[in-house]
Computed example of a mutant assay.
Amino acid sequence: MASRQVVWLRIDAPAKPAAGQPCNGCGVCCAAAPCPLSRLLLKHRAGPCPALEWDAPRYRCGLLQTPRRYLPRLPAWAEPGFRRLARRYLAIGHGCDSLATTEEDP
């Protein structure tokens, strides 16, 4: 029997794309579980990622958008390199890899 998880996202967030389609900032994957980068750097193990940020009209990764908010010891000069490495580590731009299925409230 498959388990179910409820995540709450903004009603104006985009719908989750199909696996393999370009990311549209729906936030489903980050709301369902922390990514490997969040687990490693923020020590977050379950539930929504604390770095998930709403930036209308989509969700964005706070570790990429505002890394020093979440990693205050990161020097300002290191931000561009950190962003580059994080995008590569998370395969940003390579399509949706979330296997989560979604449904709206009845």
Rank of each mutant, 00 (worst) to 15 (best):
A78L: 12
P72M: 01
A78V: 02
H44Y: 04
G62T: 12
R45L: 09
L41E: 11
P48K: 13
R58D: 04
P75Y: 12
P57L: 01
R68K: 10
P75D: 07
E79R: 08
A51V: 07
C61S: 04
A78R: 07
L74V: 04
R39H: 10
S38W: 01
L71K: 01
R39S: 08
C61W: 03
P57S: 01
H44N: 13
T66N: 14
R73I: 05
R68H: 07
A46T: 12
A51S: 15
H44V: 08
C49T: 04
P72A: 04
H44C: 11
P57I: 03
C49H: 01
L64I: 14
A76I: 11
L71T: 00
A78H: 05
W54G: 06
L64T: 11
H44G: 06
A46N: 04
L64G: 08
S38P: 00
A76Q: 14
Y59N: 07
P72T: 03
P72S: 07
R60K: 12
K43D: 13
S38L: 01
E53P: 03
T66H: 13
A76P: 07
S38D: 14
P72Y: 02
A76H: 11
A76S: 14
L74W: 02
Y70F: 15
Y70K: 03
L41I: 02
Q65T: 13
E53R: 14
K43C: 10
P72Q: 04
R68L: 05
C61R: 01
R39Y: 03
W77N: 00
L41Q: 10
R69D: 13
P67S: 10
W54A: 08
K43M: 10
P72H: 01
T66I: 11
R45N: 09
P75C: 08
